[in-house]
Write a protein that binds this DNA or RNA. Structure first.
Length: 279
DNA sequence: ACCCAGGAAATTC
DNA sequence: GAATTTCATGGG
């Protein structure tokens, strides 16, 4: 994947494994949306970004510094997804089909704290409403980047608030979980940075010390916030998909890229609900 | 009105 | 311990 730097934008070529809509709107992140003109905008790492898919390229409307310092990493541009897909596709015919259905999905490298809070909010919830709650949370206590645009809240800012303070974001019963997470991260009882060097199961156990973080949310934080691709979040869609489409297959059969397989399957299942209608 | 949504805690059996 | 109920909120 090569790119060319211009004055007000950077253009990335060779995007056969990079689709913006599938990557940004597949439910792994909650702060990007599609503009009326088909471009996308969102916020990550305290920066706003507008970007657009062209016929043979993707245009990032940002300066060269943000592109190389933030977005190359965020979009995991150093990874060859063609290679990963080939490896995964050899494992199972339905997985091959799912990867072909959305060949441009990539696993974003989100900030761990944002992933933690976002996926706490995700429990027993739907993607549209999750996005709304996250957006209101950012407006409530995130740093303002510009008029009407807010960064995801810093740990300190969020840790100052009570669940009553969070009422305006309408997170429901999850508000107290958000507060607990922010406070445990602030106090150091949970050290997100240190999770990098831990074995998967130990890191997962650390995350589950937080109220409202069970096995599935912990897997999501590890996959989307710490890029631990051996994780395999099992939500309602994945349970259905594994039962009907991958009978007898265990997540561990997908190996070190199980999490990426999971993302192809999740997206495929969610956009083919008819596959799961009763008999 | 009912059911479901990228689940987990609380309660009951 | 395993199975069931409850938890806020909003959309279909």
């Amino acid at each position: 994947m090569n790119y060319r730097v211009f004055e007000n934008y950077t253009e990335v070529f060779g995007c056969s494994d990079f689709n913006l809509r599938d990557t940004l709107l597949c439910g792994q992140c909650f702060r990007f949306s599609e503009n009326p003109d088909g471009s996308f905008k969102g916020v990550a790492f305290g920066r706003e970004l507008v970007l657009a898919q062209k016929s043979d390229s993707i245009v990032f409307y940002c300066d060269e510094k943000d592109f190389s310092d933030i977005w190359v990493n965020y979009f995991d541009l150093g990874q060859d997804y063609g290679e990963i897909k080939a490896e995964l596709s050899a494992l199972h015919p339905v997985l091959k089909e799912a990867a072909r259905f959305a060949p441009g999905i990539r696993i974003l490298r989100q900030e761990p704290f944002e992933a933690l809070i976002s996926f706490i909010i995700s429990q027993n919830n739907n993607i549209k409403r999750i996005s709304g709650i996250v957006e209101r949370l950012c407006s409530l206590c995130g740093d303002q980047i510009k008029e009407g645009v807010f960064a995801f809240p810093r740990v300190d800012a969020l840790a100052k608030l009570s669940s009553e303070d969070l009422a305006p974001i309408r997170a429901g019963f999850r508000a107290k979980y958000i507060v607990d997470a922010a406070q445990k991260v602030k106090s150091g009882e949970l050290n997100l940075k240190s999770l990098e060097s831990l074995e998967y199961d130990e890191a997962k156990k650390q995350l589950m010390k937080i109220k409202g973080v069970g096995p599935k949310v912990a897997d999501c934080v590890l996959l989307y916030g710490l890029h631990r691709t051996e994780g395999f979040p099992m939500d309602v869609w994945m349970k259905r998909a594994m039962e009907k489409l991958f009978t007898g297959v265990s997540p561990s059969d997908f190996g070190k890229y199980a999490g990426i397989a999971q993302q192809y399957i999740f997206h495929y299942a969610r956009l083919h609900p008819e596959l799961f209608k009763e008999e």
